[in-house]
Amino acid sequence: MEAIQTTDTTTDGPEDSVAAVDSGGPPEATPPRTRRTGRTVALIAVAAVLGLVGGTAVGYGVQAQREPTALPALNQPGLAYPKPLPKGGTIEPLSATEDRAVKTNGDLRKLLLPKPAGAKKTDFTDDDGWVTLPEYADDFNHPGRALGYQLESGIRRIAATSWKTGQYRVTEIRLVQYRPSDVLGSRDHAEEQMSYMADDEYAENEGVALKGSANGRFYVFPVKRKAGYLDFYEARAYLSRGDIAVEVFMFDTKKISKKDISSVAERQLGRL
C-alpha cells in the first residue's frame, strides 16, 4: 500500500481551536442597556416583600379551614432500583452486565470490536493492543502541545485495534479512556476532534449524527487525488460514552459509504 499518502489522523488541542475562531471585523453595534435607578429598584423590592407577606397570610387562612389530610405510609415497598428487592430487603450488588464500571475498569482491549472474519493484520497498531501516551501524542500535528493537553484532561490509557479487508481498506479503532475529574475528558476530547472536521482541510464537513450516541458523529470525506498516486478515500467517527472516547478511522482507494463507517462505529458503541 505504498502508493497511498495519508495525513495525520488526529488534530491538536484547544490552542488550535482558538486560532480557528473568526476574528474578522468589529462586532455589530448594539443599543446601550438602560439601568434602573436606585429608587425604582427599592420600590420593586418593597412590593415583592409585601406581596410575599400578603400571600403567605392568605395561604395560612385557607389551610386552617381545611380538613386534615392523611399522610402516606412511611414504608413504600414498590420503590426499588435497579430491580425489585428480594425477600428480607437486602440489596444485592450490581452484576457485571449492570455495572459499566466493571467493564471499563477491566481489560479495555476486550471492549474493542473484534476483527471481521478473514481480515488481515496491519501495522497500524501494536500486537499487544495498547498505545502508549507518547505514541498517541505523536499522531497529532503538534505532539508536545497534544501531550500536555491530554495530561491536563486526565488521560488514563489507550487501547487500539486495526485490520485490513479487501486489497487496501484499513479500519482502525481507538478507545481513549480518562480518569474521573471535574471535567469529562472523554466528551471534551471527542467534541474537540469533531470541531476540526468543519475546517477547510475537510471541506467543511458537518458529518452525520451517529445512531445510539448522544454526541457521536461520522464523516465521509471527498476523494483526494494526486498525480502518480492512487485515489485516497477517508471516513471517520467520533463519540464518547462515560469515561471513554471512541475514534474510528477508515481508509481505502475505493469509495467508502456512510453505511461502511457508521456500522463499525455503532457496533463499537454497542460494546461499551
Rank of each mutant, 00 (worst) to 15 (best):
residue 145 R to C: 03
residue 113 L to H: 06
residue 99 D to E: 03
residue 87 K to R: 14
residue 89 G to Y: 04
residue 112 L to T: 12
residue 141 N to L: 12
residue 90 T to S: 10
residue 145 R to T: 15
residue 156 R to D: 08
residue 135 E to M: 07
residue 76 Q to K: 12
residue 115 K to G: 02
residue 117 A to H: 01
residue 135 E to G: 10
residue 74 L to H: 09
residue 112 L to A: 07
residue 139 D to E: 13
residue 95 S to P: 03
residue 87 K to S: 15
residue 148 G to R: 00
residue 83 K to M: 10
residue 139 D to V: 11
residue 162 S to P: 01
residue 150 Q to R: 11
residue 102 V to H: 00
residue 145 R to K: 14
residue 70 A to M: 13
residue 163 W to K: 00
residue 88 G to T: 13
residue 71 L to M: 10
residue 133 L to S: 05
residue 126 D to L: 10
residue 161 T to H: 02
residue 145 R to M: 09
residue 100 R to P: 02
residue 99 D to V: 00
residue 118 G to C: 04
residue 130 W to N: 13
residue 129 G to P: 07
residue 74 L to E: 12
residue 146 A to Q: 05
residue 74 L to M: 12
residue 103 K to I: 06
residue 143 P to K: 14
residue 75 N to R: 14
residue 98 E to T: 01
residue 149 Y to W: 11
residue 141 N to W: 12
residue 147 L to H: 08
residue 154 G to L: 05
residue 161 T to R: 01
residue 76 Q to N: 09
residue 76 Q to H: 07
residue 82 P to F: 11
residue 115 K to H: 08
residue 71 L to S: 13
residue 109 R to F: 01
residue 89 G to Q: 09
residue 98 E to D: 05
residue 87 K to E: 14
residue 91 I to H: 13
residue 82 P to D: 11
residue 128 D to H: 09
residue 147 L to A: 14
residue 112 L to S: 05
residue 78 G to R: 13
residue 112 L to D: 00
residue 84 P to Y: 11
residue 163 W to C: 00
residue 113 L to V: 09
residue 129 G to T: 04
residue 85 L to K: 11
residue 89 G to V: 08
residue 165 T to M: 01
residue 95 S to R: 06
residue 71 L to E: 09
residue 109 R to P: 00
residue 135 E to Y: 04
residue 113 L to R: 12
residue 114 P to T: 07
residue 106 G to T: 12
residue 105 N to V: 13
residue 133 L to N: 01
residue 133 L to F: 08
residue 80 A to Q: 10
residue 141 N to P: 08
residue 78 G to H: 13
residue 128 D to R: 11
residue 153 S to M: 13
residue 158 I to E: 00
residue 112 L to H: 12
residue 109 R to D: 14
residue 119 A to V: 08
residue 112 L to K: 02
residue 133 L to K: 03
residue 87 K to V: 12
residue 137 A to C: 13
residue 114 P to E: 11
residue 115 K to M: 07
residue 104 T to G: 02
residue 124 F to P: 02
residue 73 A to E: 11
residue 147 L to I: 04
residue 83 K to F: 13
residue 143 P to W: 06
residue 165 T to W: 12
residue 164 K to F: 00
residue 137 A to K: 07
residue 105 N to W: 12
residue 123 D to Q: 06
residue 130 W to I: 12
residue 162 S to R: 08
residue 136 Y to G: 02
residue 133 L to P: 02
residue 158 I to Q: 05
residue 149 Y to L: 06
residue 111 L to P: 09
residue 76 Q to Y: 10
